[in-house]
Computed example of a mutant assay.
Amino acid sequence: MLLWINGPFGGGKTQTAHELQRRLPGSVLCDPEHVGFGLHRMTPPHLRGDFQDHQAWRQGVYEVLDLVLTRHPGPVIAPMTITEPAYFEETVGRLRERGHDVRHFALLAGRETVLRRLRERAFGRAVQVVAGQGAALRRESFAVSKVDLCLARLSEPQFAEQVWTDDLTMHQVADHIAASAGLALAPNTDGPLRARLRRAWTGVRHIRFD
């Protein structure tokens, strides 16, 4: 089974995906963004743009996930924002046509909630600016510019199941996804402090300096 965790930038996809992996025995996390990172590193800056626009990204994501789903016995988790209907069909749609059990979840929230989360994420990455690395905050600006489009597109029936997260904790979102997919999560034994530290560490691990 594939759990594709969609949502606007800053919507909690990565944190939720890691929480699912932590509490779902036998699961693996396969991040489609890494295929895009590879494409960017292989092309000069003026040719990069949005890697999702490259057929190579869509084909690569499909082939890698098809391979893992075919050969790995446990659940596969893929956190990735994808809002273009045609690109969605080339990845999620093709995997379903291939016969894989794909459960798609769009993590949504009100516009102000998403913007607040993006501001908090940007603040956490601001140290990179001090170090001369402004790319992180430029990515936050890109994310802000896409909020309205993401919320509008991901509310459409094609992108069901929608999960509204304004009043849910990350642990509750993971619980909802697992229950909807018929999967049993291990109990969450984190206290408040440990949960905050775990989220902070996950965020630090996903800071990019290129």
Rank of each mutant, 00 (worst) to 15 (best):
A181P: 00
H206R: 12
R119F: 09
P79V: 09
S180K: 14
Q158R: 15
P32S: 06
P157T: 13
F159R: 10
D50H: 10
A181S: 10
F51P: 02
C30I: 15
G132W: 13
M1E: 03
T83M: 08
G38E: 08
E19L: 15
G191Y: 14
W4R: 07
T83A: 13
A126I: 11
G110P: 01
S155Y: 07
I82L: 15
G74P: 00
L65V: 06
R94S: 05
H206S: 00
R205F: 00
V64D: 02
V204N: 00
P73S: 11
R111Y: 05
G99A: 06
A184D: 06
G203K: 03
R199D: 01
H206E: 03
L185Y: 06
A135I: 12
A179Q: 12
G10C: 07
L29H: 04
L183E: 01
G60T: 04
V163D: 03
R121S: 06
D101L: 15
V68G: 02
S145M: 11
M80R: 10
L115V: 07
A135F: 07
H176N: 03
H171V: 13
G191P: 00
L69C: 11
Y62S: 01
P8T: 06
V76T: 12
D190G: 01
W4K: 05
H18E: 13
Q128A: 03
L3P: 00
L2E: 01
R71M: 05
L3W: 08
V129I: 10
E90C: 04
V127D: 03
F51D: 04
D190V: 03
L65W: 11
E156Q: 15
I82E: 02
R23F: 05
G60N: 04
A122E: 15
D53T: 12
P187R: 05
M1V: 13
P79C: 07
E140F: 14
T16R: 11
C150T: 06
V204I: 13
G36V: 08
G36D: 05
G12W: 09
P73K: 12
R111M: 01
S141V: 14
T14N: 02
H176R: 15
L67T: 14
R71W: 12
H54N: 04
C30Y: 08
L47P: 00
R96V: 07
L193F: 09
